[in-house]
Design a protein around this nucleic acid. Structure first.
Length: 270
DNA sequence: GCAAAATGTCAAG
DNA sequence: TTGACCTTTTGCA
């Protein structure tokens, strides 16, 4: 189940397996027959990710895929066994076959369709061209909570419910702080953590935020769905923000920043 | 066998 | 703010 890291890894894998070659396409489930027919026997020119959106550019048209909450791609060796479950789109390459099931969106884009989707998306931590300043501006001028803002794809594209909780924890920011009250250095930290963590997610193929080499299953996250805090052992709280459940540690993520201890001039920093 | 949950988004009220 | 939608997996009878 996908946040931005999943889609970016997918784009790379599809590009590697199917890119630059002719692909056979069909819709075993039958709900994308016309679309599959449109690209069948065409060359996959480029697989590209933008936030949580995937674009598959073929010779004559571009396919847009959004996995939503349940969507999934399965990779199998060609010749592949019969589709398992409801496969919306099967892409068959020389060596590998990819089966798509359960997407929220799987559609042939009209001309200009890709551009109009990208227009609506905010800064993607996995893209070098990300317009960070614009994202910061939107956050700094909003009274909505930072927890809500981080899920808004038109501000930051690619962060989902797990990453937002983990990033806020790592940055020590309380999720209910209004965007306008988040300090520039905290925003900078949130952004840098996003880049670092999402990249790690792409590399590992799953979300791992804890600072351990080989975290065991169930020990990969700091706060998401946990009851106690890994760092301070205090009770984790959860609130609904942006329509989704969000977990945080009230001790490690104080609502007010801890007062900076006043230092007399000339005192050496600790 | 069935219910519930799952890393998401959009449109209706 | 709520419900609809997409599908698979897991847990409980």
């Amino acid at each position: 189940m996908p946040e931005g890291h999943t889609i970016h890894k997918l784009a790379r894998d599809l590009q590697r397996d199917l890119g630059g070659a002719i692909v056979r396409a069909d819709s075993p489930q039958g709900r994308f027959e016309d679309g599959a027919q449109a690209i069948d026997a065409e060359t996959l020119i480029r697989a590209e990710a933008w936030g949580k959106h995937l674009f598959l550019k073929f010779t004559s048209v571009t396919i847009h895929v959004h996995l939503g909450l349940f969507g999934r791609f399965r990779r199998r060796r060609t010749p592949a066994p019969p589709p398992r479950g409801a496969v919306r789109l099967r892409l068959v390459g020389e060596a590998w076959t990819w089966d798509l099931s359960g997407p929220t969106a799987c559609e042939v884009l009209p001309r200009g369709g890709r551009a109009s989707i990208i227009e609506r998306l905010g800064a993607d931590p996995l893209r070098r061209s990300a317009d960070v300043e614009r994202a910061f501006e939107k956050i700094r001028s909003s009274r909505r909570s930072i927890g809500d803002l981080l899920l808004d794809q038109s501000i930051v594209a690619g962060i989902g419910n797990v990453y937002r909780a983990e990033l806020l924890f790592l940055a020590g920011v309380h999720p209910q702080r209004p965007g306008r009250d988040v300090k520039p250095e905290e925003l900078q930290s949130l952004w840098e953590l996003s880049v670092e963590q999402l990249r790690r997610g792409v590399r590992l193929g799953r979300i791992v935020t804890v600072d351990e080499n080989a975290p065991r299953r169930g020990e990969r996250l700091w706060v998401y769905k946990r009851r106690t805090c890994r760092r301070c052992d205090g009770a984790i709280r959860n609130v609904t923000l942006g329509g989704r459940r969000l977990w945080y540690c009230p001790t490690c993520q104080p609502r007010r920043r801890p007062a900076v201890r006043r230092q007399t001039a000339g005192a050496s920093a600790g």
